[in-house]
Design a protein around this nucleic acid. Structure first.
Lengths: 214, 214, 214, 214
DNA sequence: TATGAATGAGTGTTCATTCAT
DNA sequence: GATGAATGAACACTCATTCAT
């Protein structure tokens, strides 16, 4: 968890949070991710954060606002294919071939997934039930990120590197493969032994060539 | 929803449930799936089912037992690649080629997914938090179903129809692609227009040949 | 308090309240009247009523609903000059002279005041802050009761027994005198010795002839 | 409300209050009078006064002390029949007749009532529940003012202008009539059209001659 | 002197569960 | 078997008050 906390700490630093606020957020992330939002009590968060229950409500008017404050600033970071600032590089000096691009994307996403695992669990759990989050998600991911992915796909289609399936379907299939890998890796079977280099290669190969022989 | 209710009714019939029990289970499925287990109150279920609160607890000792009673008998049906009784046919008279097998599997899963959507949502939501369910899931899916999948994969590998990647990885990649499709189709974007025949073909083609050109 | 409780018990009987509901209402009346609505906690009421706190909310959805349930059915009984069923008698076989009418009215109101003192305190305290109560009050008292008073006043004006001041002003002045008496008697100085017969006579005399000599 | 604030400002000036204290008191008067003491939070007062919450408690140790600080210095001013310094004049150069005295009293009280309406509401609301205020009230009004009233009444009785009823009863009846007028005028029906000159005359006439004909 | 973050006891309300009918 | 009144612990949230700055 150390690595994860460092990343979160940095993100919090950017938002100028006080020490207590950071403690509250970390405790909330921990507990929400472990037991689910609805099954987590604010008193539990307070205890884990080492603050009084009232302190939580001084910073976040409601329990839901606390959830939103955690998830909102992280949605694009988790589901954007590269962190925004890096994305322009991809377009400006694009990877020569789709294979390198895929490999880099998977590795980049894997890093983010690993570091933000608890928040990712929260996002996945709560998006179905929290309209605010869903809206954020649609805005950030389905609109911004998705459009960029389509551009990249079309780019490689133009270069003749990937087949002429509609970009939306290509995106769906590739993204499923990548997230399928990450979810298996970090959520379903985190305790298995994983050789990440090999699995990344297999995933890249699968996305490009499938499992059919010849 | 009529179709779904008919399927569930049949499943209940097999278990010899009373009329009130069926009403309770249907109301619980409805509400759990809509608001999440933890955010659903038993009084709400009672009201929707048209029974007294006490009646729920006469049949299910606790709220959690109610959840388990819904999910347990459905886990294998949802995640098994074919309903158990049909599965032997696949091994006895296997599809000549992997492509036909894949196509049949996807179509079969899609039917189940569509019909049991609310229960699937509940399973996906609650497995991370309910050890009993997780155990059931591991027992039913990860052990029984998974082993069968591996056998099928090895079968096609022996026939030289799919590549020599470790079956576990093949399974992961293929299953990701199929569930990626179904989740996009029925959970993320159920309101988009989907041409299921075409998307099935694309998914089959993707699993076998990927998106790389030539 | 015994006498008061008997009256309230009768009123509750009419509304078919359960035993626990009666206990809750009596405890609430007691505490609201003693400490004020806002300063009374539901846990205090529960304790005094000898029921669980949840029981209160099973019968009254909110604390405010509890208040309204107490006050509403009593407003007209407190402020109506005679209990409704008796009122027709007054018009049908009216008192020969205003003096007898006044005397009877004061004595009747004094009985009600004495018996419903705690509820009266609550009504007086909460009407300024609870729009629902205010509305009830206006409807019951300012409309129904007030109109009847005006009719009576006009009747005695027609008979030449009281002066030709506008009935609204007559009402205001007479009612002030009567309630001024009752408030002094039961709220401000309940511990002084009061000879009610004499004070009633003085009030009647005052309303009819004032304090000016000759 | 401007007029009221000017009067209060003057009263505060006499007590050498700082600017922040004045703001706090005005905000507290406003809110207490509108929502009641118990239903008003100190944070609300702080916000309305434009000061920090801590500032309130620097000046007034507790919320109750704030209430007492508002009400205490005004009790005698509201309920004394004339502002204290003027009162001696009444005794020294008394009005020739009771009628003039009554008329002057009513008009004087009406001015005070109008200007201090919010404080009056607070006093009426909180005296039943705050022993300190009750004590202040008894001390200031029931003792000082009341005794003065009795003296005046006896004076007019000696002059043969009012009847030989016990002064306490005379006081009760006259005061009820006056306050009944003011409460109707400013609290119950402030929105009706009132011709104050006429109503004052009616009240004077009523107190002296009642409503009986001849 | 003024601030406002922090506190923790207390609030009204909900809830899963029990049990007498 | 079915009911629904009753329970009391737990919940999200508020509040008067404190205190370091």
């Amino acid at each position: 968890m150390v690595e994860e906390e460092i990343l979160l700490q940095q993100l919090f630093e950017e938002e100028k949070l006080t020490d207590k606020q950071k403690k509250i957020l970390l405790a909330a992330i921990d507990t929400f991710s472990e037991k689910g939002y609805a099954a987590t009590s604010t008193s539990e968060i307070a205890k884990k954060a080492g603050v009084a229950e009232g302190t939580i409500f001084r910073h976040y008017k409601t329990k839901k606002e606390l959830l939103v404050s955690i998830v909102t600033p992280l949605i694009s970071k988790v589901f954007g294919p590269f962190i925004v600032k890096d994305f322009h590089k991809v377009l400006d000096q694009p990877f020569e071939n789709a294979e390198d691009f895929l490999r880099a994307t998977i590795e980049n996403r894997r890093e983010v997934f690993k570091k933000l695992l608890p928040v990712i669990k929260i996002i996945m759990q709560e998006i179905p039930f929290q309209p605010e989050l869903r809206e954020q998600f649609v805005e950030q991911v389905a609109k911004k990120t998705y459009e960029r992915i389509l551009v990249v796909i079309q780019d490689y289609q133009d270069k003749g590197q990937i087949i002429d399936m509609p970009p939306a379907s290509v995106a769906r299939l590739a993204v499923s493969s990548i997230f399928g890998y990450l979810i298996s890796r970090y959520i379903f079977f985190p305790e298995s032994e994983w050789d990440d280099e090999i699995e990344t290669e297999r995933t890249v190969h699968f996305i490009l060539h499938g499992i059919g022989k010849k």
